[in-house]
Write a protein that binds this DNA or RNA. Structure first.
Lengths: 260, 260
DNA sequence: GAGTGGTCTAGACCACGCA
DNA sequence: GCGTGGTCTAGACCACTCA
């Protein structure tokens, strides 16, 4: 039992105080990895706050990958091991990295259409050649049996690489963008998360070096609580210092230091 | 007045339906950029839902950078112009890019301490040399007068670059990581956002190439609704295809296509 | 001082899991 | 069938902005 109590006169919000205390209890081992947390109603009673307040704090810890909710069952403390969070280097084919690091990385074709228009909001990324119609594929990406991302791709290749799921060939030049997104209901169901959960959205446009023609346009939505991205900065002309943490196999854990 | 009404039997959540309709109305010009939205109470009455539901949807649009809330005043539609969202290429010094793109990019020193321990949760990033004590600096990064990020840095340099705010020298090798975070109360106040708002957390570790010694360890927290990151993938040995959208000056807008 | 967004409460119903 | 998380409601109080 914790001696912690909410200070309503604190400049911190109530849910922030509860979150901080919950993290502390998890870090101190009161709730070990894999353990089931008390129910939201019990936590609300324990802290003397409403369930909505407990919920807000639990949701933020889920977003950080500390907790995992299972509807109808309970909320569980996630393992801090490799399974809970993977690191993907942006500048290399991501599946190769994970396989090399000992993960089981699968790409499962969910839908495939031989021709498909590029959605209008992605057209700005392929301004040079206004593709008419490309092969469309929708892939679910799983790491160690856990859904981690959805990829929509529009590909100009005529081979069967797309249909067979071998998406990780390196075509040529590739450039991309990362932004934030939030899961729709459909996306949440596929990814095993909840509507409104934070997602990383990466949009990658790759071209064949010889012709400059579009090879593939892909949009991938990553569950933000399950992935970190690594990158390297250019040093001198053409020199890259590969992300060393990957080589060391270090797995970053959660938290900003501030406890949030 | 919209003829839209909530369908409670829809598989979509109520707040998802409201959000979709609000986006539609904004895109159709009913609420132009800079316009003030009806108050949350009015929207709740109009849609026939509770204020909490309206709020959840408005918050998600704020998170995507579509809306901006001003306490005591109202909620406003953000311009889709350069001011609302900036693109930062991860592999280059970010301020130089923004200045080159015509932005006003300032780095303001908020706090500075001549010696400061590296926080324990960052030690894993500098495993090679276990730094004793480094110069600490806390910077607020502003673009076009708008706060966009906070940088905490631990620097081994003895010059006064840190104190003078010139943090964007390129030291040597640099590698980094991106993950998701959520604003604490303090961070939210500095950044002009709200507690729990989504942040990108980038941790960058740079070293001097000659010695491999630590040059600087920095953690930057970016307001996710105000920034996109660009990156390029390695092609052949040492070759980089610079992110073309930056050169074109294209400014990506919001949305995942799915309308969320 | 009226109106606004930010936070919190108390209660309700549902779909799902699991024994 | 009970307990759980997921969603939504109705109402309250506060700090803040602005006329």
């Amino acid at each position: 039992m914790s001696t912690f109590s909410i200070d309503p006169s604190s400049p911190y919000t109530v849910w922030g105080q509860v979150q901080r205390d919950l993290r502390r209890r998890i870090e101190l081992g009161e709730f070990a990895t894999g353990d089931k947390l008390p129910s939201e109603i019990d936590l609300a009673q324990e802290y003397g706050v409403s369930r909505a307040t407990v919920r807000r704090c639990v949701q933020s810890l889920i977003g950080l990958g500390v907790l995992q909710a299972k509807r109808g069952s309970g909320t569980y403390v996630l393992q801090e091991t490799s399974a809970s969070r993977v690191t993907v280097h942006l500048q290399r084919p991501w599946r190769e990295q994970l396989l090399a690091a000992g993960h089981v990385a699968r790409s499962r074709l969910v839908r495939h259409e031989p021709t498909h228009e590029v959605p209008t909001d992605l057209l700005r990324f392929v301004e040079r050649d206004r593709p008419e119609s490309l092969q469309f594929g929708l892939h679910l990406q799983e790491v160690d049996g856990r859904p981690i991302a959805i990829t929509e791709s529009w590909s100009s290749t005529t081979d069967d690489a797309l249909a067979s799921g071998r998406l990780n060939r390196v075509p040529a030049a590739a450039s991309g963008i990362i932004r934030i997104g939030f899961a729709t209901l459909d996306q949440a169901e596929i990814l095993g998360t909840v509507e409104g959960d934070a997602l990383f959205e990466t949009i990658t446009c790759s071209r064949f070096r010889e012709t400059g023609a579009l090879a593939e346009l892909a949009r991938t939505l990553w569950v933000a609580s399950r992935v970190d991205f690594g990158y390297s900065r250019i040093l001198a002309a053409g020199q890259i210092d590969m992300y060393e943490l990957l080589a060391h196999g270090a797995q970053p854990t959660h938290g900003n230091g501030e406890g949030r």
